[in-house]
């Protein structure tokens, strides 16, 4: 079996290992809470984390073998939801993104556990897989930076909004409209 087939077949097991690594980055009681409730509204953080990991995983597999090319703009966008959450949690930049690399570990451990990790071809495929994960991490890093920038932008906007009238009276608000339109294009 090739690695792609293996990862497809072992999706639940690898994902579980990966999720465990992600949750390990939280304090234990927090992790238990994130793990325990499967509920979009009362446990949005937990839900976002597990949903995102699944989506990213599927996307990665889709790009393996054959064409093997990551889509335009990298894989980062699939991580947006989870990065958005981690960007406001108490992580350093490295801490917020380290979890991506633990997918490599999760995949290897599962391969080892099920005795699939042998053969030169497997090694080659694993390297390809690693490259995809690295690319994912780079995309995630871009998005993480966007999130952090957004936070500072929000802080600045809030100060501006609080004194909206004052600025308006002083005719200092010209650039605001332009910025808003710019943002609309982005979204």
């Amino acid at each position: 079996m090739d690695l792609k087939g293996f990862l497809k077949e072992k999706r639940p097991a690898v994902l579980k290992r990966w999720l465990d690594y992600v949750l390990e980055t939280y304090p234990s009681q927090t992790a238990e809470m994130l793990r325990s409730v499967e509920n979009r509204f009362t446990n949005p953080v937990g839900r976002i984390i597990s949903d995102s990991l699944g989506a990213v995983y599927d996307e990665l597999i889709r790009h393996m073998g054959g064409a093997g090319q990551a889509p335009e703009g990298g894989l980062g966008e699939f991580l947006e939801n989870i990065i958005k959450v981690r960007a406001v949690q108490e992580f350093t930049a490295s801490g917020a993104l380290a979890f991506i690399f633990s997918l490599k570990k999760a995949a290897r451990e599962e391969a080892e556990a099920s005795g699939a990790g042998c053969g030169e071809d497997f090694y080659r495929q694993m390297t390809e897989f690693d490259t995809l994960v690295d690319r994912l991490a780079l995309g995630a890093f871009d998005f993480y930076m966007q999130c952090r920038e957004k936070i500072y932008e929000i802080k600045a906007a809030e100060v501006r909004n609080q004194t909206f009238r004052l600025l308006q009276q002083a005719n200092l608000l010209v650039e605001k409209k332009e910025e808003e339109h710019g943002e609309e294009h982005k979204n």
Binding site: P27, A31, M33, T42
Partner: peptide, 13 residues
């Protein structure tokens, strides 16, 4: 326990 928005959002016990 799980009714507080800060607990839901931070997971901090």
């Amino acid at each position: 326990a799980d009714k507080c928005h800060f607990y839901i959002g931070t997971g901090d016990p």
